[in-house]
């Protein structure tokens, strides 16, 4: 009896160990990265670094323009991509279910999510910078990033809408609610946490993007912060890339410190979104 028990538990244990490893490996790698980066950037990390402009002298150089530029980009990207993406998802999921066209669109959106980001950069350069005369502005950069994350926002939002049980929609319809009333007051409140999770992932991806911004014309060395949507800009990853490619050793320390700032920014953004999501969920429960 006990012999049989241990034998049948073997695969169970093995699988458990495997899942632990699956969690531990990426965590350890991340931890390793964090330790290395923090240690090598430690000498430069500090309030000064965050509030200073880039400089030819490594030990004076700061990351302010990159940080502010990235925050501008994030804000604008969210403002553009979230309403568009969620709106598209609502349309496809709640209104356009049957049509063959919507199925075609669905496949294409999935494909778009896999297009290399440099291609979006080129599209942004042609469309926003040149055709729409936005110039090499933070707005052009944000529009480009918004295009880049849009497929992801649409897909995740659709997934979130799909998890709302049909029975709730039917309950609303049976009470005499119109489709829009049902979506706005019953479906969306249920889907918000899922949508927000998608938004976090999408923005986390956007904040790390470098290539499309370079193509769109982000500067690599600026000594001011953007004062409007039409201002030239730089972003954290671009600043980091710039420092890494300098021959002087001292700039590599700056790059490491920059990476820590980038990670911290991402953490703060994610934290804020998770906090928001939990509050929404608490309101539901």
């Amino acid at each position: 009896m006990s012999d049989h028990d241990t034998r049948s538990r073997m695969p169970e244990r093995a699988f458990f160990a495997l899942t632990i490893a699956a969690v531990a490996v990426p965590l350890l790698v991340l931890l390793f990265l964090l330790v290395i980066v923090t240690r090598s950037g430690l000498t430069r990390l500090g309030w000064d670094f965050v509030t200073s402009y880039p400089s030819r002298h490594a030990d004076h150089a700061g990351i302010l323009p990159g940080l502010v530029g990235s925050l501008w980009l994030m804000g604008l990207t969210a403002l553009i991509a979230l309403p568009l993406g969620v709106g598209a998802a609502i349309h496809l999921e709640e209104y356009g279910k049957q049509s063959r066209l919507s199925r075609l669109i669905e496949i294409n959106i999935a494909n778009l999510a896999g297009v290399p980001s440099i291609v979006y950069g080129l599209l942004g350069l042609g469309l926003f910078v040149r055709t729409l005369h936005m110039g090499r502005s933070v707005l052009a950069g944000a529009c480009t990033l918004a295009l880049l994350v849009l497929p992801m926002v649409v897909m995740v939002s659709r997934e979130a809408l799909r998890t709302v049980p049909m029975s709730l929609r039917e309950a609303a319809y049976a009470l005499g609610a119109t489709r829009w009333q049902t979506i706005r007051q019953v479906v969306l409140p249920q889907a918000y946490p899922g949508i927000l999770t998608g938004a976090i992932l999408a923005l986390a991806r956007a904040i790390g993007e470098t290539a499309p911004l370079v193509v769109v014309g982000a500067l690599t060395y600026i000594t001011f912060v953007p004062d409007g949507v039409d201002a030239p800009f730089t972003a954290l990853p671009i600043q980091i890339f710039n420092w890494v490619s300098r021959p002087q050793r001292a700039f590599v320390v700056n790059a490491a410190a920059g990476i820590v700032v980038l990670l911290a920014t991402m953490l703060v953004l994610n934290g804020a979104a998770i906090y928001l999501r939990n509050r929404l969920q608490k309101k539901r429960a």
């Binding site: 049980p165 029975s167 709730l168 039917e170 309950a171 049976a174 409140p189 249920q190 539901r284």
Partner: peptide, 11 residues
């Protein structure tokens, strides 16, 4: 209409 499974709005 009342449905087979109780479906109060969870939120």
């Amino acid at each position: 209409m009342v449905f087979q499974k109780p479906n109060p709005f969870p939120s």
